[in-house]
Design a protein around this nucleic acid. Structure first.
Lengths: 190, 190, 190, 190
DNA sequence: AATGAATGAGCGTTCATTCAT
DNA sequence: TATGAATGAACGCTCATTCAT
């Protein structure tokens, strides 16, 4: 009989404790030794549960993205008009500002560390990308992919601007502005 | 007679040759040794003209940002309406797509290596940010800083999306969409 | 009734499945974990049957050497003159070229990982060496140990040359040459 | 002005001190840290002079092989008949027995560590191989490549047998035996 | 002003073996 | 018997920076 440890469950436990670590130090600056120490295991044990630092991170991203989408769904449901939705989106972004900035930071950091090609070819990141894209389409009730890309890019850009250190941007203000513009644009289109 | 090249001019000469190096390898993967070898100087000499790798890069960014703004100005002048301007902006982005993606990539890379706080506190990056912001205001003829941030964030987001590997986004299409939305929004505002 | 397979028989079963693994990856690159997985047992079980990786390998060598000698005996019997024998030996080497090169490779690998002294002092390897030496004496009908060593060294050297990457050596040609030389040498000796 | 160090000469100095280290521990068991400590430099300095452990070793082999051939030339000249030559060869092998065993050991060790393909493709090892082969041809006055391979394989095999731990083999005895056999073989051939 | 040799802590990763269950 | 989680020292290698010359 083996030691009484559910391998898979313990792996997710470890994973759960990793997010804050990455959030604090980013991907490149966080070493496997630091992770191991923070989780009170040896590096060997860490590698027993995750084949590499990259794999650990990808599994983390996978887990996080699922939680993100379901929590956002819970938070933003019940809004009807585009303006309402964008206002809610603004509030949601403000509320989780630090979280999203950190998330972008970590991803950006990972991206740089692995090189463009590695990520482009990773099935996990393609999946995660689709998950977020689909979620945005669902939230907004938008089917036009050009418009969906427009909104997603804008939100990404907002967070990136904050990440670069711009203190003057106000998520709520910007989202409401987008809400108004989208509304007017769609009103007159048909 | 002194030497024709004085300290400061030589420094800028060296700086000029650095851009392509960073563009090819990014910030983290380019070592001071490699820079020195490519410039046909010793690492010691490099450190004689630049106190650190970070400082070298910051001076490079400062220089590049000036050139970017003036070249963009030259390229995009002569357009009147917002729609025309945004269409020109789209063409400009498409034309320099690789350049801007690479620039974002390098910045992201630098960001990762220095840590969040270092950059947020760097006066050079604040200055550069203002320069780009001012340029956008000039291009668009917009004074409203909220709207300027809106446009800048959107463009940043577009480039970031490409950086993430999204092949489906079309800079021209997106910029024209923004042009239409801005036009309608501003028409009815007053 | 006890289980059909007792401890010792099961050990040999496991051993039998190990040869191909070592042949594919060598000694150093094959981990106990990989062995365990390939045999569908746990590392713990592996250590239950073999006290160490080294011991496992030594037992494998012991087993293999027995099979080698008996299969060679079966293959080469029926030849009378030294020339015939050496020609048969050449054919045998050519036929099993990859096998012998791989065997030497694995041994070399093992040798490297254990250090010179460990092996020189291992009774198993001394036994195996004697077994091969005796086999050569039997094949050739030679009693003179100097001559037997001569032939064995030569064959070892041939295989080693192939291992070094020499593509020009022809086992058959070389063995026939040895056959002629031995014949002439022995003709005139008495 | 740089520090007064002739880069190339210092590199060869370091190289010279490395042989004994490799001889004692082999390739795989000797770490770059150990080398650095023994040479009283930092690992960084070691890597300043040699791009990798493999490269260091290859440069060492290159240097050693040159010295070997010239020292053997000096030692063995003046012999006429094949028998004399082989007797001299035997003495030479006996005299440098430990040296050659160690050399084979190190090479075998390196071979295993790098994998077959790496070495087969290394221009340095092809060059070294040719150097030794040519030297043997010169010593023996043999032009027939089959015969040269025969002798080389035999010598390699002798050393390998000793390496495997066989204490009973006598280099002189074996070489003289080879001398006699070669002589008889060549006498009657034409 | 200019050189380039020197540093050394730190990286991601490995793996034979142990032992609580 | 059998399991597999856990260990941790050690590997080859990197690189911004310093400083004697």
């Amino acid at each position: 009989m083996p030691k009484i440890v559910d391998h898979d469950q313990y792996r997710k436990e470890l994973l759960g404790k990793c997010f804050d670590l990455f959030a604090k130090k980013g991907y490149g600056a966080l070493t496997m030794r630091q992770i191991a120490q923070s989780l009170n295991v040896s590096t060997g044990t860490l590698y027993h549960y995750f084949p590499s630092k990259q794999a650990l991170f990808e599994q983390l991203v996978e887990e996080i993205s699922k939680e993100d989408v379901s929590s956002a769904l819970a938070e933003m449901e019940g809004n009807q008009t585009l303006s309402e939705i964008m206002t809610a989106m603004g509030k949601y972004l403000v509320k989780n500002e630090d979280y999203f900035i950190n998330q972008t930071y970590i991803l950006v950091d990972f991206y740089q560390h692995q090189g463009k090609e590695t990520i482009a070819n990773s099935p996990i990141f393609q999946l995660v990308k689709q998950r977020y894209q689909q979620a945005v389409c669902d939230f907004l009730g938008i089917q036009d992919p050009v418009l969906a890309s427009f909104v997603l890019s804008f939100i990404d850009g907002l967070i990136l601007a904050k990440l670069w250190g711009d203190q003057t941007i106000d998520f709520s203000e910007q989202c409401e502005l987008l809400g108004k513009m989208l509304t007017k644009y769609l009103q007159e289109k048909p």
